[in-house]
C-alpha cells in the first residue's frame, strides 16, 4: 500500500517526512508541551507590547520579563516528544528531541512485539482509533482507520489486532468484516423514562390545585 493512498485524517497523524526509514508519532505529552508553549506566548506578546509602549524602569521590568518568557517558550515549542517506529534497527521507542538534537531515548522494543490495535473511539460516536504502545490516534470512520492500520502494520511488520468484529474482545486482525447481527437479540432493556413515568410525575398536581382552591376560599 502507498502512503499517498491514505486518507487526509490519517495523514495528520502520520507524516511522510522520514518515511521509508522512520515514522515519528506525536505522544500525548507532546500535545501538553505544545499547549503550554502556546499559552506562554500570550504573556510574551503582552510584555513585548509593553516594552514598546513604556519607558524607564517600567520598560526594564518588561524587558527582563519578555527575555525570561522567550527562553521558556522557544525550547518548549522546539521540543519533540515522540514515539518512533524505526525500520533501520527494527525497534519502537520513545524519544525527546530539542532543536533536532536527540536528548533521550527509552522504552525500546522490537517492532515484532509492538502491537497495533483498531478500536472504537470513546470521544466521538462512530469514529475509530489506532492504539500503538498505549498512544491513541483518533482517525475517523472504519474504512480509513482500517486502511491506516493495514498501511502501518504492513510497512513496519507490526502484529495487528482489532476490537470491532467481536466487540469487547480484542482479536488478531484477519478477514475483517463489520459485525453482523448473527446473535439472536435478547430481550431489549426498557428505558427508564417513558411517557407514563413523566405523567406519573404530575400525579400530585390535581391534589395541589384543589388544595389551592381550598386555601383561596379560606383566605377570602
Amino acid at each position: 500500500m502507498n502512503y499517498s493512498a491514505l486518507s487526509k485524517n490519517a495523514k495528520i497523524h502520520f507524516s511522510d517526512k522520514y518515511l521509508p526509514d522512520r515514522l515519528p508519532l506525536a505522544t500525548k505529552t507532546l500535545l501538553f508541551i505544545r499547549a503550554f508553549g502556546f499559552i506562554l506566548t500570550i504573556p510574551l506578546v503582552i510584555s513585548l507590547f509593553m516594552v514598546i509602549r513604556l519607558d524607564g524602569t517600567e520598560q526594564h521590568l518588561f524587558i527582563s520579563a519578555s527575555m525570561l518568557l522567550t527562553f521558556a517558550v522557544i525550547p518548549l515549542l522546539a521540543t519533540k516528544h515522540q514515539l518512533v517506529l524505526d525500520t533501520l534497527n527494527t525497534q519502537a521507542y520513545l524519544e525527546v528531541r530539542t532543536f533536532g538534537i536527540k536528548l533521550k531515548q527509552w522504552k525500546s522494543k522490537p517492532l515484532a512485539k509492538t502491537e497495533i490495535t483498531l478500536s472504537p473511539s470513546v470521544h466521538k460516536e462512530s469514529s475509530y482509533q489506532l492504539i500503538i504502545e498505549g498512544q491513541h490516534f483518533v482517525i475517523g470512520d472504519l474504512a480509513e482507520t482500517e486502511q491506516a492500520l493495514r498501511f502501518i502494520s504492513s510497512h513496519f511488520q507490526l502484529p495487528a489486532f482489532e476490537q470491532v468484529s467481536q466487540y469487547p474482545e480484542i482479536t488478531p486482525l484477519g478477514e475483517f468484516k463489520i459485525p453482523s447481527d448473527a446473535q439472536a437479540p435478547s430481550k431489549p432493556i426498557e428505558s427508564l423514562w417513558n411517557s407514563t413515568a413523566w405523567l406519573k410525575l404530575l400525579l400530585p398536581l390535581p391534589v395541589f390545585i384543589t388544595l389551592g382552591f381550598v386555601l383561596k376560599l379560606f383566605g377570602s
Binding site: P204, F208, I209, L211, G212, F213, L215, K216
Partner: peptide, 25 residues
C-alpha cells in the same frame, strides 16, 4: 404564598400548584 392565595385570581392557583409540585419532588 399559599396562605395569601385568597387575594389572587384563579390562574395564580395553577402557578402555585406547579411550584408546590416542584418542591414536593
Amino acid at each position: 404564598l399559599g396562605l395569601g392565595l385568597g387575594r389572587h385570581d384563579e390562574i395564580v392557583i395553577l402557578y402555585w400548584a406547579i411550584g408546590a409540585l416542584l418542591s414536593w419532588h
